[in-house]
């Protein structure tokens, strides 16, 4: 591919730090991707608006606070309302295994829990782009 994959990395919710998100941002950069980093405390509305303006291929979100069951699906829903169907939405963070099937059902393409090597996330992105 002669264009970089563009990824929006965001932290929805009220988490106090973004170390994990920064680690993944750097890994994606080192994998030749263009990472738009938006930092802490994003609302789903802000994430979707930014993703549209930046015309990204991927939205990667990370949550530690436990609000994933609400916030992740909200982002997918807002994309649908905007008629956007070609953005790959993935999630990560502290997420109980039991929650993962529900999140996938809601349209989160994949969920990466702590300890997942970043190479796996990179591989997943490359193999599942929608545009």
């Amino acid at each position: 591919m002669d264009r970089p994959i563009r990824v929006l990395v965001a932290k929805p919710g009220l988490d106090g730090h973004d170390r994990g998100a920064k680690v993944i941002a750097r890994a994606l950069r080192d994998a030749s991707m263009e990472v738009i980093y938006t930092g802490l405390r994003q609302t789903p509305e802000q994430i979707v608006a930014a993703a549209i303006q930046e015309d990204v291929d991927v939205v990667a979100m990370s949550i530690l606070s436990g609000a994933h069951n609400h916030l992740f699906p909200k982002v997918v829903k807002l994309f649908k309302e905007e008629g956007v169907e070609d953005v790959l939405v993935i999630g990560g963070g502290v997420i109980p295994d039991d929650d993962i099937p529900g999140l996938k059902e809601a349209g989160i393409a994949e969920v990466f829990t702590p300890g997942t090597p970043t190479t796996k996330t990179i591989e997943f992105i490359k193999n599942n782009l929608k545009k």
Binding site: R29, V35, Q42, E45, A49
Partner: peptide, 23 residues
């Protein structure tokens, strides 16, 4: 690597949903 981290939006997040602004 040809990759990058574009971080300017961090300071502008409140404008993301402003209908008058495009970043």
């Amino acid at each position: 690597t040809g990759g990058s981290i574009l971080g300017d939006r961090i300071r502008m997040n409140k404008l993301a949903t402003d209908p008058n602004v495009f970043i």
